[in-house]
Design a protein around this nucleic acid. Structure first.
Lengths: 327, 327
DNA sequence: TTGAAAGCGCTAACAC
DNA sequence: GTGTTAGCGCTTTCAA
C-alpha cells in the first residue's frame, strides 16, 4: 500500500502539501502542484490510511452498533437505517451482537472503545446491567428502543412510546370483544412497559390481570409456542397480546396446531411489524415501529453530534397500530 | 483516555515493559512489576489503543463484510455467523451494504481498505463488475454465495451447489406431477445457475422451457407478486420454482389473492429457507442453505488465514431440499 | 506557496 | 529484567 510520503516524493514535494490537498486545505496551493498531486494519486490508486489519520486526529469516522442479535428480524432494518445514514456521511459501522448477555455487551463496548470509535448506538440487553460503566468513558452514545434513566449529556435516546402502544394494542383486542386476554412477552429487568401497557388497558376496562394468562420468557418464536400452550391449558383465552411479532408467530402456530382458528377462537396482536407479518395467514395485526427510521435517525443524531457538536437529544418516534386479519 | 505511557509513569517504569506485559511477552519480567502493572491497568481502567497498535503492527483485527442488503432476511443469519466467529477470535467486523450497486460496492471496498481491515468477506452484487479491482490490492477475500472465476491465492470461496439444488427443487415439482412449471428469479449478470438448474430439470424430463413462464427481476417480494401475475396471465402453471423465499412469499400471496389454492392449483418451492418460511401457510417447501454456518466458516477461514497463514480454500456447503406443505 | 518537525499511542529490536 | 530508540502514516503549527 503506497503512502502519502511516497506520493510526495514522486511529485518532488513534501507530504505536508499532499496532506493539505487531500483534505481540501488547499487555498494557498498552486494549481500546478495540486493537479500534479491529484494525478499522481490517481495513477498509483492511492488511498489515504485512515487509521494513521485516526490516530493523529482522534477521529476514526466509525461508529459502533451494539445490539442483541442481528438475526432477529427486527434489527436488520434498524441496522440498515444506521448503515445508510453512516455511509452517506462517510462513516463506517461495526456491529456487535450481545445475545442479551451483559458480559458480552461490556466486552463489545471495550472492543469498540479500543478501536476508537467516535460513538456507539446501543440497543441494550434486557438483563440488568449498570449503565454507569458506559458513561464513565467519554464516548457519545445513543440508546435505541430501550429506556435508560440518565440525563448525561453524552447520551441521546430514541424510542417509541411502548407503554402507550401496548395499551392501544390491548384496547383494540378489548374493542373487538375479547374479555379473557393473555400476554406473552419477554422477561425484562428494567422497563417492562409492554406488560405494563397491557395491564393498564385491562384495568381501565375493568378486567382482571391474571397471572395464569401471562407468560414471560424471551423474544423468540419458541416463547410464543410455549406461552400459548401454557395459557390455553390454564383456560382458553379469546385474545393474546404478544410482546413482539416473533412471539406472535409462535403463538399463532401453536393455536393452529391445537386446532383453533384465528381470529374466530382467539385474536392475536403482535409488536414491531417485521416485514413478514403481513404475509402470515391470517395477516398479523401488530404495532408498527419505524425500525429503519429509528436506525437512520439514531445514526444521524450521533454523527452530527460527532462532526458538528449538535447536542444529543431524546427523540420519540411514532408508532402505529396496523390492523390486519388476526384480530 | 489514559495511555500506556501514563500507566508506565504511574508504575515508574518504561512503556516497553508495560507493552510486553500486555501482550504476554512477559517471560523475563519480574512477578513484582507484572503485578504492579496489572493492578494499575485495572485501577485506571486502561484499555490499549487498538488503532495505534494497528498502525504499528499492520493488523487491525477487523474484517469487513460487504453484502447487498442486511435487511434482506437471508443475510442476517450469515452476518450472525460471521460475527460469532470473529468475536471468538477477538476480531471486529464492519458491515457495508451495497444495494447491489457495483459503485457502492467499490466505494465500500475502498473504505474498508483505508481502514486497514485485515480481510473482507464478500457477497457480491449481481450486476457485472470487474473483480480484478479487488484483487490488485493485496487483501485476503472470501467470497460467499456467489461464483467468481479466479485462482488467485488471495481469495477463498464458499457456496452451495446452487445449480444442483435448483435442479433438485424443480425435479421435486415434476415428481409431484407438475408439467407446466414457472420460474421467478433475479436477473443476474454472471452466474444464473438457479435458472440453469431449473432449465436442466425441465429438459431432462422432456418439458419445454417457455419464456412466457419465466420472469426475472430482483430478489424481492414484489418480484414474486409481479412474476406470478405475469406467468398466470400467460396461462395457468401448475408449479413455480422461485429464486428465493422472498420471491416465493410474494408469489404465494399473489396466487391466493387471485383465488387459487396452494398446492392444489399450483405448487411452489423457494430457495434459502429463511426462518419464517416454515411459518407461512402453507409452509413453504424450499432449499435450505446453511446461512449461519456459511458465515461462520467464511469468517473462520479468513481469520485463520490472517492469523496463521492457513491457505484460503474453496468450501462447498451442503444444501437440503426441505419439503413442506406448499408442494 | 511550501516544508520541517513534532507527535498521535503503540511495538520491536537491541542495548544495558 | 528493563529501558532506549526508531518509526508505523498521517496532520499541524510555524517558519521560510
Amino acid at each position: 500500500m503506497i503512502t502519502m510520503k511516497e506520493i510526495a516524493q514522486e511529485c518532488g514535494i513534501s507530504s505536508a502539501t499532499v496532506s493539505k490537498i487531500i483534505n481540501g486545505n488547499d487555498e494557498h496551493i498552486s494549481e500546478a502542484t495540486r493537479a500534479l498531486v491529484l494525478q499522481t494519486i490517481k495513477k498509483y490508486n492511492y488511498v489515504p490510511n485512515a487509521v494513521a489519520k485516526g490516530l493523529k486526529v482522534k477521529r476514526t469516522n466509525t461508529i459502533g452498533f451494539i445490539l442483541p442479535d442481528i438475526s432477529n428480524p427486527f434489527f436488520p432494518e434498524i441496522a440498515r437505517g444506521v448503515e445508510d445514514a453512516a455511509e452517506s456521511c462517510g462513516f463506517a459501522v461495526t456491529f456487535c451482537d450481545t445475545d442479551n448477555d451483559p458480559k458480552r455487551e461490556l466486552t463489545s463496548f471495550q472492543l469498540l472503545r479500543s478501536k476508537m470509535v467516535d460513538g456507539v448506538i446501543f440497543t441494550r440487553t434486557l438483563r440488568h446491567s449498570s449503565f454507569d460503566d458506559y458513561l464513565s468513558v467519554n464516548l457519545p452514545i445513543v440508546v435505541v428502543d430501550r429506556r435508560v434513566e440518565t440525563t448525561n449529556r453524552n447520551v441521546g435516546k430514541l424510542f417509541v412510546d411502548t407503554f402507550h402502544a401496548s395499551r392501544q394494542a390491548t384496547e383494540h383486542l378489548i374493542a373487538r370483544g375479547c374479555r379473557r386476554i393473555g400476554f406473552v412477552g419477554a422477561a425484562n429487568d428494567y422497563d417492562d412497559v409492554r406488560y405494563l401497557g397491557y395491564c393498564s388497558a385491562l384495568e381501565e376496562a375493568g378486567l382482571r390481570v391474571e397471572d395464569a394468562l401471562c407468560y414471560k420468557s424471551d423474544y423468540s418464536v419458541e416463547t410464543g409456542h410455549r406461552g400459548m400452550k401454557a395459557i390455553i391449558s390454564a383456560g382458553m383465552p379469546d385474545g393474546v397480546f404478544c410482546g413482539n411479532d416473533l412471539i406472535a408467530v409462535g403463538a399463532m402456530a401453536e393455536i393452529h396446531s391445537m386446532g383453533f382458528t384465528i381470529p374466530t377462537d382467539v385474536r392475536v396482536v403482535g409488536f414491531d411489524d417485521i416485514y413478514l407479518s403481513r404475509y402470515l395467514r391470517p395477516a398479523l395485526t401488530t404495532v408498527r415501529q419505524p425500525a429503519y427510521d429509528m436506525g437512520f435517525e439514531a445514526a444521524k443524531m450521533l454523527i452530527s453530534h460527532i462532526t458538528e457538536g449538535t447536542p444529543l437529544c431524546t427523540l420519540k418516534m411514532k408508532h402505529e397500530l396496523i390492523i390486519r386479519e388476526s384480530t
